[in-house]
Nucleic acid binder design. Structure first.
Lengths: 357, 357
DNA sequence: TGTTAGCACTCCAATTTGACGAGTGCTAAC
DNA sequence: GTTAGCACTCGTCAAATTGGAGTGCTAACA
């Protein structure tokens, strides 16, 4: 059977209606749509076809139809294609977005110096704006270059290492050392570290460079080892992958998600954050097809507990290919159109903020 | 009417039973208790009295009784008194706790150098252990003394200030300055800042000291102003009050809290965190009566959305009166005894970890 | 051949009903 | 002061009832 023009129209009408109401939609409802003058009986026949083709199902025999994941997928793909091609639309959107951009910019520029807070506010604002749950991952440091290291003495056997990466990503690390260290030697060590490591990415801090440093350090070999280890560990540390979430309780606004066991699992995933890293990883591998926007419907998501949700993600770029991910988690019947637009706005905005920094 | 010995026994039996089952408890259930040989009819009479006195209520006419907030309050106060006085019990507990302390110590000592992670793990472990929701506030920096400041150049017009407080509380701040700065001047500024401000608490960085510094800075007066402002702002910044939460989804384990609107409000409070600061503030004012452990039952809590919960909080000390708060949020019928013990354990443990650092 | 009106049928959701049981309050007797 | 007994209340559960929304199918029509 073929998905002819009329079937497409009906399918879209069904999904659109379902997105709005959340109720199964019957043939009579669709037959009232102005632009296709068909009786409910005809619609019913078409619906039967669409069901056979797997785009819609009935929750039970005498109920209206609701979209399947395949149906949603068709709808979303079509929408994305529309956005890609429709140039007139695009210009309109740019104009529309300009307003948001402005207010957003004012809002963001106030807190540029604290990336953590910035991303948390983005998550929060987006959640409030969309009424869905949100996640924002901090940009991945991997592959980024070291700007400088600064060692200072805290106590006789404690050293504070301040590590600054390109893009002003800053990490602090307290290192407990086994031997005491004079001011003079600390200075030397500082110089040694900076001349040897500055401008290198994690990958480039390989064995030969490190062993060379250790030789230069002479009697403080052991200490250098400890510090370099700490630096490497700090930069590469898996849990650098911070994820900020917000609006978890928004899911209670959607009855199909608020039953206690589903809600519990979902909120757990958002609180625990571990599983959310899967989305970030997926984004990293991705070849950026739709300006970096991805839609996961139901089981397409890499997270088990989100099988009843849809997730829309976007990537933003810091610089040098450092990327972060923004995600919106909502019911399958989320307002994809609006969500995609919001994400595009934030994306542009974040790119902007970070490039300026 | 007076709360005589027998009434107390019956009341305690009712509450204890209700804590275990979560079901309204009837007169027959209590009459089976071995240590008070009374028929259900007698119990019924006593129950009627207890109800009149406001310790228990019936959810509906022909149901068993459940404790009121007043009832819980009596139960908890009695328990705390017991713990205070019962020395034998206490020794037993110390022995019991020793085991936990050991495993806990191993666990904590691994991540001492990252306070943030440490506190987050405490929240997590405690939530897993108790099956309630938990919160842990970072120790308040207010009143703490500055150890040193370190300025480094990031870009021509950007300076990184690393601010270290007593207790190795570290803050980073990127300051955008209006004038360019030579290496030499940066060094001078560093010295000026440290000689003037080191060892001072926020309260002591008053106007006279700052203006004195500004004079010394000569032509860089404007810059000093900016830096000092940044330092002060960073130290005093209200949002230094970080709160870590965990186990929010544990509330779904208790039917009386899992109805969607209650759960939503509760989880929102835990996610938003703003309202949780009220507990921290209350603790600060508190004169530490029961080794710093407080129990809030229902409306006693300063947070509206927790009117159906109980909250148990404890304070831990870092040093110099820097205090943080640990809280456990659960249903009114939580296992107060266990929770108080757990909190005491963690309290000791954290005191320990921080004092050692 | 495609479209439509009509009708019997299905099934859910909401409401009603009745039986059951847990628990109470009261009274009278011990 | 305590207890046994009894009538009464009320919530819970399951079964029965009803109404309505929506379907599939058939026959007639253009």
């Amino acid at each position: 059977m073929e998905l002819d023009d009329r079937k497409v129209k009906i399918l879209k009408a069904i999904i659109k209606n379902y997105l709005e109401t959340g109720e199964p939609v019957g043939s009579r409802t669709i037959s009232k749509y102005a632009d296709l003058k068909l009786s409910s009986a005809t619609i019913r026949n078409e619906m039967a076809d669409l069901e056979e083709m797997g785009y819609i199902v009935q929750p039970h025999t005498s109920a209206g139809r609701i979209p399947t994941d395949k149906g949603y997928r068709f709808y979303v793909d079509d929408m994305m294609l529309q956005k890609e091609n429709d140039l007139v639309n695009r210009e309109q959107l740019v104009a529309d977005r300009e307003k948001e951009l402005k207010s957003m910019r004012d809002f963001l520029s106030q807190k540029v110096d604290r990336v953590e807070e910035l991303l948390q506010s983005v998550a929060k604002a987006l959640a409030k704006d969309t009424n869905y749950a949100t996640m924002v991952s901090a940009p991945q440091v991997r592959g980024n270059k070291l700007k400088f290291v600064q060692l200072s003495q805290l106590e006789t056997n404690e050293i504070l290492a301040v590590i600054v990466m390109e893009g002003n990503v800053i990490r602090n690390k307290v290192i407990t050392v086994s031997e005491e260290l004079s001011q003079e030697n600390l200075l030397k060590l500082n110089i040694l570290l900076n001349t040897s490591l500055t401008g290198l990415s994690l990958q480039e801090m390989n064995l030969s460079i490190v062993s060379k440093m250790e030789i230069q350090a002479g009697e403080h070999m052991q200490l250098v080892k400890e510090v370099v280890d700490a630096v490497v560990e700090t930069i590469s540390s898996e849990d650098n992958l911070k994820i900020y979430t917000s609006g978890a309780t928004n899911i209670f606004k959607y009855p199909e998600l608020s039953d206690s066991s589903k809600a519990s699992e979902l909120i757990y995933a958002l609180e625990e954050k571990q599983s959310l890293t899967d989305f970030v990883k997926l984004e990293e591998d991705e070849e950026q097809p739709n300006s970096g926007i991805q839609v996961y419907i139901g089981n397409e998501a890499p997270v088990e507990s989100m099988k009843d949700c849809s997730v829309v993600t976007a990537t933003y770029e810091l610089q040098d290919g450092m990327r972060g991910t923004i995600g919106i988690i909502g019911p399958k019947r989320m307002d994809y159109d609006k969500v995609v637009e919001k994400l595009k706005t934030i994306q542009t905005q974040l790119d902007d903020v970070f490039k300026k920094t």
